[in-house]
Amino acid sequence: MLKDITLGQFFPGKSILHKADPRMKIILTLLYIVAVFMSSSIVSYIVTVAFTVILAVISRISVRVILKGLKPLLFIMLFTAFFNIFWTKGESEPLFAYGIIKIYKEGIIFAVLMIVRVACVLTGSSVILTYTTSPIALTDGLERLLSPLKKIKLPVHEFSMMMTIALRFIPTLIEETDKIMNAQKARGADFSSGGLIKRTKALLPVLIPLFASSFRRAGELATAMECRCYRGDKGRTRMTQLKYKPVDLLLLLIMVAYGAGVVLSNIYLGNLIVL
């Protein structure tokens, strides 16, 4: 059933990454992505891969899950790698030549590094953030991280409230879509034959009731929220208080050390193995 899909791909657990403050994890993810893209030498790539593997291990997310997460992007990765191989021109003699097709050593290296980089960014940001942080903690972290922006009248609270409600209602709406589709199928609706236009048109009997019911839900929810004294973030407190813990500092130090490692190996060890 559609109901079973997990949202935001969060895997509950007790690892150090699960325990870290969501605000810190957002910062760490940004730092990590910057560092990965700064890597420009073989040594810094090795550092990056090693670091990513360590992150994955301490997150205790299973290898299977991580590989599954990479799968959707596998095609794009291979596709760009393929173009890199054929389009990159090297200075040395081509390794392989057939007519106008020439493959250089640089092309292959470039393609491999590209795959490694994308795979690292994906894996790393997933284990730091999406796999180990519940969607609610994520929105919460984002709201508090961005709360200084409220001063310049950016609707940070409203945005995070919208996110929370969206997350809350996605499973409900998926279930509802399923129900309405079945109800229309029972009246002979056909969603699976005909061309694109016919199929799109066939969806109207699903979309119209779905919209109607979403509006109804929105109206009822708004009333219910008003009855619970909601009036934006005016005078609002929060039950869960976010506090940076030693764990967060530790993770930050590790991340900084990794970033420094990348920068230093780019500068000093960049020539150790020549591309």
Partner: peptide
């Protein structure tokens, strides 16, 4: 379905007092 706001039960119960 149309009166629960949060994605976690205890967060939802906290919504009123928070407001």
């Amino acid at each position: 379905d149309n009166q629960l706001v949060a994605t976690v039960v205890e967060e939802d119960v906290a919504f009123g007092p928070e407001n």
